[in-house]
Structure formats: structure tokens, C-alpha cells
Design a protein around this nucleic acid. Structure first.
Lengths: 192, 192, 192, 192
DNA sequence: ACTAGCGGGACGACCCGTTTGT
DNA sequence: ACAAACGGGTCGTCCCGCTAGT
């Protein structure tokens, strides 16, 4: 799920390297398990530089989660224009693809939330934001396709995505893929 | 999802208090976020006593996850005897009930896995164990009910459970409940 | 150099096991490196029992060193009666034998002194005691043999013993043995 | 025996202070008896700084022993050029001088070995290194002087040094000095 | 007289996130 | 950008007492 793409405008290379390294380590090993010393060491950046770009580790974490949000949106936005139905299927394909990567380690948002229990924390807010976006995306696509119950079906699709990402990490990505394929098309065909 | 029930008979009270306290704190605040010192303080136990019962913190974490496994199984085992279909619905009801508790903080297993990236770690093995049990449980009940495809449908149900627990924590338990109700019965009625 | 022989009169078996275990561990791994928990565990004795027999760890250490003293004296005392010269050679043979044992770990007294810097400490006093005895032993034997300078020669022999034990541990027991043989006889033959 | 002399050029002052303090405390009170906290406190250095220079306490210990090795070699190397025989006597004089210092606490190498039982440990290897150097030093000087058996005599001299340092600590430096003087010259005069 | 277990508190080595001087 | 300082926190072990149960 995490990726690493520059998308802002003028961004300091140090900040870029820091965020990239943090992304790799946070996602791969957990947030509390990774110290900033390690991040700055692997990013090849001085500590003062780090604290110039990020006032605290928590801010770095937030930046990490927010970037995952933006990257997810970008992936969907960059999908070739197709019918709403095809786009929906393409989104799920994206998730399956991600889940097959060797460095896949589950959903960055779910994992981050697991380490940030307070729903009011900035990290959790960023997670919420991403989930709201995803749900809206599904809803709009379903509505565009003329689905009779876009709202509730979007909720189901979000739930499906959660299950796909969790199951791909804890069980098997291929198994999850075959499992969901039928359920998904059935869900979309309810519109007929 | 976590609960705290004594099930062994001859168990030291100190160990019991330690495991109870650890369960509460690990589940409520995250594993890496909770230190041994805090656990022993809130359990009212000396540090030496702790290390007599648990050789290391990781062993305590494993004991915590394994107990959640046992407790989950016990909850299902203690369900009143009914038809397989009713039992399946009752299991999902259990999850929904748990998810409505004020101290609900998501799935203990998913959260633990989020903090233990190594799939070979004892914690992850315990998580796997629980998921294998749950899947087998679903499969057997579906088979007993005469479902045409118990294996794959069990996989879907596990995915559904994941989605329920994640969505209940990150979105809204009531919303997830209404969302899943229809999907679940539809899934079970495929047998007709 | 350390051995383990009951020699007192009525001695509690618990105390005996404690002292034996402590001797083995202190000598084999160092004094500060071995905790009392390990000693009582390997001795199969309760902690309260330990503190009934030894008011503190330091007292146990003292008992350990003092027993090594007694054991050394016993070894020499049990030597078959021979000429003073033969007895002297036999004492050195004892040291060489000890130094060839697989569990030889240097001189228990020197090692203990290395961990107890304060010359006024009970442990150091016990070490002093042993060295005084050894020196006197050498002196008396030399005098009995009619050596012209028993006092100074005894000092040399003590120095030789130190060198033998240190060299046997840090270099090679066999090498030290061949090294000292000539020097020793030459030293004793000075009397002619 | 221990001294504290800067010999590298580009050395961080914090590291220098740490090593100096460690040398003083390790030698004076024993290695296991001195904690990191005390060393960094007396060195006036932050804990993080310590662990930047020494990855672990054992590495500090090794650095300590290795520095003693270098310092010993430097002392001998700096001896004014004289005949081999005079140099040998000067080396023993060095040891006697050191042994008379008020802070003399025995041989740093023997003491360190007493606390590091494993002969394969880095500390013991460093000790071995020093002893090999000393033995070679003696052998070369004896050979240069035309001694008939430099190899074995070097072994005796090493043994003598051990005895001198141990005896100076556990008995009396002055006594040991008078004791060894005769033995030494006799040993060297064997060449005639 | 011995065992088993637990409380207590200091200290062990080591790492945390953060700030400052240079 | 580097090195260092800082204080507190990590897990784990130290030695020692005390109670309860045989």
C-alpha cells in the first residue's frame, strides 16, 4: 500500500529522503519500533535537519500517513478512464497487486491505527480522512453506474478492502484474491 | 474482543494479575507503547516476580495473544446448541457485541500483528493459530448446514469478520452492523 | 585449585550444597558474574534457607575463599610423609596437576582478589591468610631441609606458584611446567 | 600498570575522557563492579555520546585492555637505548616502579582475565596479545645478549613478571623487589 | 528446618526523542 | 551538518526481606 512518489512542488531533498526512509521503516517494521536515529542515519541526514523539517516524530508519522493517503488517491486518479464498473474492479485490482508485493505488510492505515489508540490523534484523523475518501469514491462510482444502493454498497466495499488487506497479510494474498473475486462481481451485479 | 477469564486451575495469583493487566494495557494502548514497569506497577507485583513467570516481555505478549485465542474459542464453545446456521449468526452477533463495548479497540490479533512484522515470530504464529481455528469453525458449520461451498465461503466469512472488526474500530460499529447483516444472510442463503 | 570436600563436623546439607554450587560458579565464571538467584536455583535450595546460612552474598564469598584455603592446606597436609625436599616438589606437583584439570580457571585467590580491590575486605583477608600459610609452609620445609636462606627462598617459591597458576591459565600449563621444573630444582639445590 | 596517554591524533575528547575514566575505574575497582552510568557521570559525557563511541560496554572493556597493551609497549619502546641486559633490567625496574605507585592494583591483564573466563572473548584475546608481545620482547633481548636458551628463559621472565605483579599487590612490593633482584641477575648470568 | 513464592527497590546495559553549540 | 548534551525510558537482573506452608 505505501509507495513513495514526489508530488508536491518544490520539496527539499533532505525532507524527501527522510519521508521516504520513514515510510519504508514505519511500514515495514512498525512505528514505535523505529527510532528517529535510525531514520536519519539511513536517510543520511543530520539530526538538526530532521528537526527543521519535522517538529517532532509524531509530525513525521502524520506526514507519513498523510502521504499514504495522497498516494492512494493518486493511484486511483491515474487510472485510465473507463466505465464506473471497470474502475471499481480496477481499484480492487490495485489492492490485490499491492498485496502481492514481497514487501507487503498489510494496510498502512490499519497498522498505524493499531499503534495510535486515541481516535482524536492526528494520525487517526489522517486515517479517517483516507477512509472517508475511499468510501466516497466507491459511492460515487456506484451511483454513476446506477447502482440501486450506492451508499450501503460502498460501505460493503470498504469492508471488503479491509478484509482483503488484512487477509493478504495474515493469510494469503492469492487465496484472498480468489475469495473476493466472486463476491465482488456479485455485489456489483446486484444493480441489474 | 479481549476478555479475561481464568481457565487453568492451578495458576499463581500474581501471574493472573500480570496477564490481566497486560491484556488490558496491551489491548487498550498497544504493545510497544506499554512498558513492563507500568504493567508490574498496575498489577501490584514485584519485577522479580514478573520475570519468574514470564522470561521476557515477548513471552508475556505471546501469553496475551494465546489467551485471547483461548477466550475466543471459549466464547464460541459456550454458545447454546443450535442449528449450524443459527450458530454462525450467533458468532457474528458476538463480534458485533464485542465491537460495541466502550473499550473496544479493534481486533487484538490484527493489532498485535501490526506490531510484529515478522511472520515467524511467536506472536504471529499465535495469531495464525487463531485464524486457522476460526476458519475451520466456519467451514465445519457451513458443511454441517449443507452449504455447497463451505471452504470458500468460510474464507469469505473470515474476511467479513476482519472487515467487521476493523470497520467497527475505524468507522462505526453500528454502521458496520447494518452493513453486514444483509451480506451475511445472503451468503448463507446461497445454499438454497 | 578449588575443590569441594566436607571437613567440618555436623554441617547442614543445604549449606553444603550452597557452598559447593557457589564454589563451582564463582570459580568458573567469576564472583560478580554469578547472582545468588542462580546459586540457590542450582543448589535446589530456597532463598530463605540461603539467608539463614549466609547473612549476605559477601559472607558466602568469604566462606568460599576460606574453604579454598582449608582445602589447599588439607591437600598439603595429606601428602605422604617424605623428606622436606620431596614434599616441596610434591607441592609444586600438586599445583601442576590442578592446573591441568579441564576446569582449571586460574588461582581462586588471585581471581577473588581481582574482584575485591579493598585490601581490608574479608575476602582479601582470607586471601592474605592463605598466602601467609603457604609462605610459612615453604619456609619451614626449606629450613627443615637446611636451606641457607629459607625466608627469602620461600618468597621466591610463592612467587613461582603465582607465576605457575597465572601462566597455566593465560598461557599453557604444560609449557609452564617445563619452564618451572629446572628453576625449581636449581632453587632448592642452592642449599648445597 | 595502567596509564593513560593519548597516542592517536584525531581522537574525540569525549571518547578520550570516557576511556580515561573507564581505565581508572575498571583498574581501580574491577570491571563488573563499575557500571556505565558511573563512567559517563564521572567522564561528564552523555549516555548517547558513550554509545556512539562504544557500541557496548564490552567494547569499552576491550578498548581499555588494548590501550593498556599499547601503553605497556610504549613504555618499553621509550626506554633509552642500552645493552640488551640493561634493557631487560630496566623493564623489570619499570614493573617495580609501577608496583610501588599508591594506586597500584595488580596486573590489569591478569585482573581483566579473572573477570572474563572465556578464553575466546575479545578481552582475553587482547590479554593474550600482550603476553605474546612481552614474551617475544624478552626472547629477543636475551638472544641479542647471546643467552644460550632465550626461549625458555623468556618464559621464566614472563612468569617472574606475573609473580612480581601479583606479589606486589597481594603481599608487598618492596618485599617482592628484593626477592626478585637476585633471581633475575642469576637468571641473566646463566649466559656466562 | 526447609520450601515456594512474592514484594521491594536499586541498578545493570542500552536507546529514546529532543535541543544546543560549533 | 556534525558531535555532544540531556533526561528519561527500555527491558532485565541485582541482593535481600518476608510470609505462608509443609
Amino acid at each position: 500500500m505505501p509507495a513513495t512518489v514526489a508530488e508536491g512542488q518544490r520539496e527539499s531533498p533532505a525532507r524527501r529522503r527522510l519521508l521516504d526512509t520513514a515510510t519504508r521503516l514505519f511500514y515495514g517494521e512498525g512505528i514505535h519500533a523505529v527510532g528517529i536515529d535510525r531514520i536519519i542515519a539511513e536517510a543520511g541526514v543530520a539530526k538538526a535537519t530532521f528537526y527543521k523539517h519535522f517538529p517532532s516524530k509524531d509530525e513525521l508519522v502524520r506526514a507519513y500517513v498523510e502521504e499514504q493517503d495522497r498516494l492512494g488517491r493518486a493511484l486511483v486518479a491515474d487510472l485510465p478512464p473507463r466505465s464506473p464498473r471497470q474502475t471499481l474492479l480496477a481499484i480492487f485490482d490495485l489492492y490485490h497487486q499491492v498485496a502481492r508485493q514481497p514487501d507487503f505488510r498489510g494496510c498502512a492505515f490499519i497498522n498505524a491505527a493499531a499503534e495510535y489508540p486515541d481516535p482524536a490523534s492526528p494520525v487517526r484523523r489522517a486515517v479517517d480522512e483516507h477512509r472517508r475518501w475511499l468510501r466516497a469514491q466507491f459511492r460515487d462510482l456506484l451511483a454513476a453506474e446506477g447502482h440501486p444502493d450506492p451508499r450501503r454498497t460502498a460501505d460493503i466495499l470498504v469492508l471488503l478492502v479491509d478484509g482483503v488487506l488484512v487477509g493478504s497479510e495474515l493469510d494469503s494474498p492469492t487465496r484472498v484474491r480468489t475469495t473476493t473475486r466472486a463476491a465482488l462481481t456479485q455485489l456489483l451485479d446486484t444493480s441489474t
